[in-house]
């Protein structure tokens, strides 16, 4: 087994743009669940709305990339309104079921051949990131050191992705430390109490849904800019479940939690998968075939999600006092 290659691969995952994309979605979910207590199980849809919004803005409406990004964010706001207005009055478990259903509805709509002219159907959309690439200020060449050596477009993608993460985290930190954030945390604890103090709980929940949704939409855009295509299959329920695992790993009611949780999640996931893959290759593990190693990944995610919720609901970062599940 080539340990060096395994570690390099895992360290590369630490700062990959995909990790940044998942972290953005997890920061959005922290606003929803960690700070406001909303059981949103449709986070994949917010990311997808952002990604499709941007891609359709560029391809169908011919927008410049910067405008298309704003358009994608606006789509996420609209989606939050459409999803939130009817459902935010529901109990937590109903909200979980409804958000997961809404995310699936959105995916079916992107998949159906009826709208394939705009959405690309099951094939999805590609060739929307040419302008983004052209914006790259770095001259051709290789940059970095050790395991972190990137070509110019890889470097560009990483800088954009992680800059977005930092900005989103700072933004969330600022608003959560304000009286506005205090109301959200109050709602997480007991919405009737907050209502009895004269706050319009519904409006606050809707604002939280919008803000977390827009941050997730940015995550979705980073995701598809990196892959150069957007497909309905990316935004299934597994995407949402991975984000939950990332969030709960780091600690739901913290700012650093989603970031460290995300990096750690992909580091550990790549390590375990590479090691299992290596063991399969050398024949130590003989009951798995090479393609099954990729499936083990999700098996681990399922177990991690269970273990985290049972043994450490506050996450590795969170203060035990600061995170509880209501109900």
């Amino acid at each position: 087994m080539d340990w060096l290659a395994i570690f390099n691969l895992a360290l590369g995952e630490l700062i990959s743009p995909l990790t940044a994309a998942y972290i953005l979605c997890a920061i959005g979910l922290a606003v929803h669940f960690g700070f406001t207590g909303l059981m949103n199980f449709g986070q994949a849809a917010f990311a997808a709305v952002g990604a499709y919004g941007m891609a359709i803005g560029i391809l169908t409406f011919g927008m410049p990339t910067a405008v298309a990004i704003l358009f994608g964010m606006a789509c996420a706001v609209i989606f939050a309104l459409v999803l939130g207005i009817p459902t935010l009055r529901l109990r937590a478990d109903y909200l979980a079921i409804v958000t997961i259903a809404a995310a699936e509805i959105f995916r079916y709509l992107m998949l159906t051949s009826g709208f394939a002219g705009v959405t690309g159907g099951s094939a999805g959309l590609s060739a929307f990131n040419e302008e983004f690439r052209a914006l790259n200020p770095f001259p051709d060449g290789e940059y970095g050191f050790g395991p972190f050596v990137f070509r110019e477009e890889e470097l560009w993608m990483r800088i954009v992705g992680w800059l977005t993460v930092v900005l989103a985290a700072l933004f969330v930190m600022f608003v959560m430390r304000s009286p506005w954030g205090r109301v959200l945390r109050g709602i997480r604890e007991d919405e009737d109490a907050v209502r009895s103090l004269g706050k319009n709980v519904f409006a606050y929940k809707l604002q939280a849904l919008i803000i977390g949704g827009v941050i997730a939409a940015l995550g979705g855009m980073i995701f598809v800019l990196n892959l150069s295509n957007v497909q309905p299959a990316s935004w299934g329920t597994n995407f949402t479940f991975m984000i939950w695992t990332v969030l709960l790993l780091g600690g739901a009611a913290t700012i650093l939690g989603p970031i460290v949780g995300g990096m750690l999640f992909f580091l550990l996931l790549t390590l375990t998968q590479s090691i299992i893959g290596g063991l399969v290759d050398v024949g130590v593990i003989n009951f798995l075939s090479p393609p099954q190693v990729g499936q083990v990944r999700f098996l681990i995610i399922g177990l991690a999600l269970m273990a985290l919720v049972i043994f450490r609901p506050q996450g590795i970062f969170g203060n035990k006092k600061e995170m509880q599940f209501n109900g």
Binding site: P179, R182, V183, R185, G186, R188, E189, D190, D192, A193, V194, S196, L197, K199, K321, E322, M323, Q324
Partner: peptide, 16 residues
């Protein structure tokens, strides 16, 4: 009683 458990006492008050 609906004290907001995971807010500090002073934050509970400010929320009022």
């Amino acid at each position: 009683t609906k004290a907001l458990s995971l807010l500090t006492v002073i934050d509970n008050m400010r929320l009022g």
